[in-house]
């Protein structure tokens, strides 16, 4: 590493600089989660605690939606696990780019891992100097702080809303997840997985009702993905 000795201060500042482009997209996203928490019965403390500990918008959204609908705890936990499952793949991909790191540093880095840090971090890792802990943390910490500020804004805003339906909050979660799914449309076999999961979930929803459609659709999508997979190495 000595020949590629990095300037830690500059690396950190580069990370901060590269985070700025994402602030505008993180802000409304965090505000949505905060407002959704309020409309589903969360207190400001609970909502901020969730944002501090999770730092994972999709799973936070799922938690509030399923909690508001009165689902059993184990169903909500399973849904959080499933929605955050992509983090397992992210972690495997970014961990090796950050190595070698001490355990506390690695854990702190993985704690704030999310979609933006993965994409930006992997891009940074393509440079000869690689991906430094300082760059990664500069980027991630700004996003983390923005996330907390945005959540707080959402909590304040959420308390002003008297009827969530009047601003379309009842459709926010479906729209939000549909758009997240559309973001994966470049991946192989996604259209097929999309249709099989949605179809099975729809039938099970009619037949058994919520929450069984989540597990059934999820498993059906995994099964079809495994069945149609081709043995090339995918880029995890």
């Amino acid at each position: 590493m000595t020949q590629l000795q990095v300037n830690r201060g500059k690396e950190f500042r580069d990370g901060v600089k590269d985070s700025l482009a994402f602030i505008l997209s993180v802000l409304p996203y965090g505000a949505i989660v905060g407002a959704l928490g309020v409309s589903n019965g969360g207190s400001p403390f609970e909502i901020m605690l969730q944002s501090t500990l999770f730092f994972a918008g999709a799973s936070q959204t799922v938690m509030w939606e399923l909690y508001g609908l009165g689902n059993p705890q184990w169903v909500i936990v399973l849904a959080i696990f499933a929605v955050n499952f992509r983090m397992v793949l992210y972690s495997a991909a970014i961990g090796r780019k950050l190595e070698p790191l001490s355990k506390p540093k690695m854990i702190s880095a993985l704690y704030i891992l999310q979609d933006i840090s993965l994409a930006t971090g992997l891009k940074r890792a393509e440079r000869p100097a690689g991906l430094s802990y300082e760059y990664y943390m500069g980027l991630g910490l700004v996003l983390y702080v923005v996330w907390l500020v945005a959540s707080a804004i959402g909590v304040i805003f959420g308390q002003l809303i008297e009827d969530p339906k009047s601003i379309g909050l009842d459709m926010l979660v479906p729209v939000y997840f549909l758009l997240l799914v559309m973001g994966f449309r470049g991946k192989s076999n996604m259209a097929l997985i999309f249709m099989v999961s949605a179809g099975v979930a729809g039938l099970v929803y009619l037949w058994l009702g919520s929450p069984y459609h989540i597990a059934a659709g999820g498993l059906a999508g995994m099964l079809i993905a495994a069945l149609v997979a081709k043995p090339e190495r995918m880029n995890v």
Partner: peptide, 16 residues
């Protein structure tokens, strides 16, 4: 492939 499918397979069920 099955692991990669998890997020999409689960998230789309939330639209159902």
């Amino acid at each position: 492939a099955a692991l990669e499918a998890v997020p999409v397979a689960v998230m789309i069920t939330l639209v159902v």
